[in-house]
Amino acid sequence: MKKLIIVTVLFISLSGCSKHESNEAPMSLVKVTHPTPSLINSDHRADDSSLLNDIEKDVEGYEELYDAAIVKNDNQILVAYKVKHLQRFHMKKIEKKLTDSLEKKYQDEEFIVSSDYKIFLEVVELHEKMKNPDYNSDEAEKKFKKIVEMQKELT
């Protein structure tokens, strides 16, 4: 028992010294963050921004989930969200419902939908980085692609 406690404490203290540079990202698993959607490459920034805001409203309108992080690159839209704890049993169903309705409503766009914490974490981190003017869109795109790849990877 003692050793179990020691191990738990070890992990808690380890996660204290985080390597993440941004402030908001590490807390995004515990807190509801409501990040503003980001755009990486876009020809019509104004239109796209309002489109993303609409999508965020739609996604957060679902009562099974809370908190959505959205990022758009070209015509790929990555939607990461957190499912309410007791709804986690229906995770697959929610994902399908969400994807179907988004694809139906915004037919020109390609959606990548994920309820994975890791994807959420990475998207929030991407948001944070893009606030920095030194962070150029090439790097952002690279990170975006990495996230998409991670989402597709399975056990």
Partner: peptide, 11 residues
């Protein structure tokens, strides 16, 4: 998930 590139699936 925090410190390595694992998703919930792969972690």
């Amino acid at each position: 998930i925090y410190f390595f590139n694992f998703t919930e699936q792969t972690a």
